[in-house]
Design a protein around this nucleic acid. Sequence first.
DNA 1: TTAAAATACTAAACCGTTTTAGAAATTTTT
DNA 2: AAAAATTTCTAAAACGGTTTAGTATTTTAA
Lengths: 348, 348
Amino acid sequence: MIKNKKVSLADIAMTLGVSKTLVSMVLNGKGDENGISKKTQERVMELAESMNYKPNQFARGLRMGRSNTIGLIVSDISNPFYSRLARSVEDAVSESGYNLMICSSDESEEKEMKLLEMLINKQVDGIILSSTLDSTDHVESLQNENFPFVLIDRIYNDFEANTVVVDNRTGALEAVEFIINNGHKKIAALVISPAHISTQVDRLEGYKDALSKHSIPINQYYQKVVKREDIYNAVSQIFIEWKSDHMMPTAIFVTNNQLAIGCLEAIRDLGLSIPKDISIVSFDDIDLFKLYSPPITSVIQPINSIARNAVEILLDNIKIKDNSESLIKTHKCLQTNIVVRNSVLKLA
Amino acid sequence: MIKNKKVSLADIAMTLGVSKTLVSMVLNGKGDENGISKKTQERVMELAESMNYKPNQFARGLRMGRSNTIGLIVSDISNPFYSRLARSVEDAVSESGYNLMICSSDESEEKEMKLLEMLINKQVDGIILSSTLDSTDHVESLQNENFPFVLIDRIYNDFEANTVVVDNRTGALEAVEFIINNGHKKIAALVISPAHISTQVDRLEGYKDALSKHSIPINQYYQKVVKREDIYNAVSQIFIEWKSDHMMPTAIFVTNNQLAIGCLEAIRDLGLSIPKDISIVSFDDIDLFKLYSPPITSVIQPINSIARNAVEILLDNIKIKDNSESLIKTHKCLQTNIVVRNSVLKLA
DNA sequence: TTAAAATACTAAACCGTTTTAGAAATTTTT
DNA sequence: AAAAATTTCTAAAACGGTTTAGTATTTTAA
């Protein structure tokens, strides 16, 4: 089974009385193209098998400059959206014989830079990145070095790179339009910090699109950025403010699952009832939404598809780089779906 | 920033007119102990810094036989329990300068073996394993090779190894006792497959302990194993069976969060009401339980503490191995907490 | 004044692969 | 029968570090 992996190419070569070169070629499937006789090939393969030979990855990596590993950076692997994404990425890369290194950046720019450096240092063959950064310096230097990477989930408008995203703006538009079609006019949008992140920006745009489209005035007062460090209290504060101003919206659109959880808690603790007192629609479907009472209408992202596309593009890029052909940039924008449940009240 | 890392030790040595040996020593903090003059040390460090030297991990790993990476195998990183565990492990190892490789075994014995092999092949310095396997062959061979590893969450009774677990039996006992103290007598236990896993076994034992302690007869009919592939339907079937037999329990104890989710769905769809028709207590606290109506009483595992302990023990072991001292085995058993909410009816 | 010790450093081996450049033995061509 | 081509295989370099076993020079001790 798992043997004391001390068997090296040299050992095999020695016992067989052939050269390391030959053994290496055979085991890498290059026996035929190098004119190694069938018989010798067989002898090598058999012995390698029976000695349970496993090539030393360090030696291999050192020589070839590749690790067969790819890196994934997300903001927090314990967020269900990212953990499911990571799982899909894991499955996809392992199908192609790659390993995965998952890292959490914690929405910290500094940490993200460190992780990026670490992954490059570990010589990963490519990186899938959901970036927290506002600037593009770091990805630009990746680009300049011709390092394969793909941006997912969060992207930069003004920067050309491989990207796999969801059509956040349309997704949000549809969600808010759904609210509007139920007769609502006073609709608030809650965004999570840092608000510069493309998903948040786009979803907020989509919210505004929907209002505009239906000629509902856009009110700054109904657009709030919530600090992710203290969601529950921040949200509670917002509700209290609305209430005391006698400006309570009839519906809220929430752009993130963590934010939604905070909202549900706050709403409950303030004694409000969904959807009677307030309607809600959230981005990111999580188990909770399906089982909450009432079940929460939400925007579903095609997580598996995001992962598959990102991996495919990345592996393509790695291959292209190996052949030192010139890279092309691929953009993929996937559509979301809205799953209607019972969290939006139909107004007269 | 992230520079084209082509700078090697030799480059630094060359420009400074010293040997690679010296540079290596200085950069590894062994300058003093090897009597390198302060002045030279400074020159080396400065140049390394300014050239943005980053040691090649492959070369280093090849020579030293270590990767500064540890492996974590769980059944599924998208399960919130494991994703939170993974996150804590990530934080803990990175504080000690290690990197982490997270893998999902999917409750497949074959996959688990493959992952183990892969990690060993990648020369990780140690492994944290939440095993799916029934047999101990694989961990025995780790043991025999003196490979540092620690078993978490799921362990083997008949096998000596480093372990960090939770006191599942007592946790379950307390949970069921809480149900009993509310006047229940017809209490069922739902376990998830594969049922041989220690957590499931122990929690079921705890359930029986509680019944015995309070002189309630133990009835096989109320102990069900649910296939994890089709939880919702399996659970629904069980409820229907109980109903048609006129044997509906007044309370159920559920040993896993995924199972609980299936139960909540099934219970809702069968038109039953919690806790009026049926009371429920689950293991593993998840967001859903806090926000469900009614909020679900559950047993909380000290996830962060599990992770920290496991990492500490593992890193200790790695250190011990480096000094080729003889390994000692550490066992850690952490207590759970029960968080009482509103899912258990107080019977007259 | 010479031997021993301390200081400051280095050449070369080594880790285990892959790859380059070519060699030896056999077969084919002329 | 010599030249050319084919088949089968190999020695040695390279990847970039760490470590071992020294060496040369200066200082201290006897």
